[in-house]
């Protein structure tokens, strides 16, 4: 089987029944001389998936090297397909006539599956069949445009034409419409939960009001000392009353009135003179 190996090939040997004696080491040495500069890796089929092998790394994978009785599952072949380079080859020695192995290979993504010949019975075993499969020249799972997609520009043009013809009669009420409620998917019906509606660090506590410049109502003091000051007798000495609402204290009797102009006579309405209840 080693005749399929070329110089520089990275080779993966997958086995499930260990051979007797030093057969395994002999084989590895033999392959190593064939591939010389390439990597040669032996792996138990059951452990292949756990091995964390890099994708698209091997040129050749060999199965059933030590025993032609081994049967590999779809899953193992798929994993082999993953670690093979595009157009890499898998060789499978198999005693059971090819049909089931061929279909398993196909299902795992290999193409151009055929018989690679019989093994020399140098080991004294009965001659076994060798199947070869090739990994396609693209990655498994990659997408690519299908050939009929070439028609797309024309299709797009005709779609545009339908759009434009349709747009010529915007007021046509008799055109059938889709039910727009059907557009919504489950996730569209989810209502935001309360925690996502909080700004900032999300403590949810209301921010204390900032004290004005030249604060006289005691808020600045309160914020500084962390204590609530004794209520003071009302005073109009804060000097901010004449400004607009943006700068007035929270308890300013002039709230709601425009800013005063210099020299303007100020009169409060009855409503403003009565305390809010």
């Amino acid at each position: 089987m080693e005749k399929f190996i070329k110089q520089g090939d990275n080779v993966l040997v997958v086995w499930s029944v260990p051979p007797t004696g030093d057969k395994m080491q002999t084989m590895v040495n033999l392959i190593k001389t064939k591939s010389s500069t390439g990597v040669v890796q032996l792996e138990n089929a059951q452990r292949l998936k756990m091995g964390g092998y890099e994708s698209s790394n091997y040129d050749i994978a060999i199965c059933g090297l030590f025993s032609a009785e081994e049967i590999y599952s779809n899953e193992i072949f798929a994993e082999i397909a993953r670690v093979l380079k595009p157009q890499g080859k898998v060789y499978v020695k198999n005693n059971n006539a090819g049909a089931s192995t061929t279909s398993t290979l196909k299902l795992s993504g290999f193409i151009n599956i055929m018989e690679a010949g019989l093994t020399e019975s140098s080991t004294g075993d009965a001659a076994s069949q060798i199947l070869v499969g090739e990994k396609p020249h693209f990655e498994v799972g990659s997408s690519s445009k299908l050939s009929f997609a070439k028609k797309k520009p024309a299709q797009e043009e005709s779609a545009k034409t339908v759009w434009n013809l349709s747009a010529m009669d915007m007021n046509d009420d008799d055109v059938e419409l889709i039910n727009d409620d059907d557009l919504l998917e489950e996730e569209d019906l989810v209502v935001p939960d309360a925690t996502s509606l909080k700004g900032g660090c999300g403590t949810g506590e209301t921010k204390p009001k900032k004290a004005c410049k030249n604060c006289t109502c005691g808020l600045a003091e309160e914020l500084e000392t962390g204590k609530t000051p004794q209520p003071k007798a009302a005073t109009s000495a804060c000097g901010s009353c004449y400004l607009g609402d943006a700068f007035r204290c929270a308890s300013c009797p002039y709230l709601g009135m425009p800013a005063f102009k210099p020299g303007e006579k100020i009169s409060l309405s009855n409503r403003q003179l009565t305390a809010d209840s």
Partner: peptide, 19 residues
């Protein structure tokens, strides 16, 4: 509203806005 009624038309092909 007009825009809405237009894009909800059933006859619009599903590739017309692919550009």
């Amino acid at each position: 509203k007009l825009f809405w009624k237009f894009i909800m038309r059933k006859n619009l092909p599903n590739t017309c806005l692919s550009g």
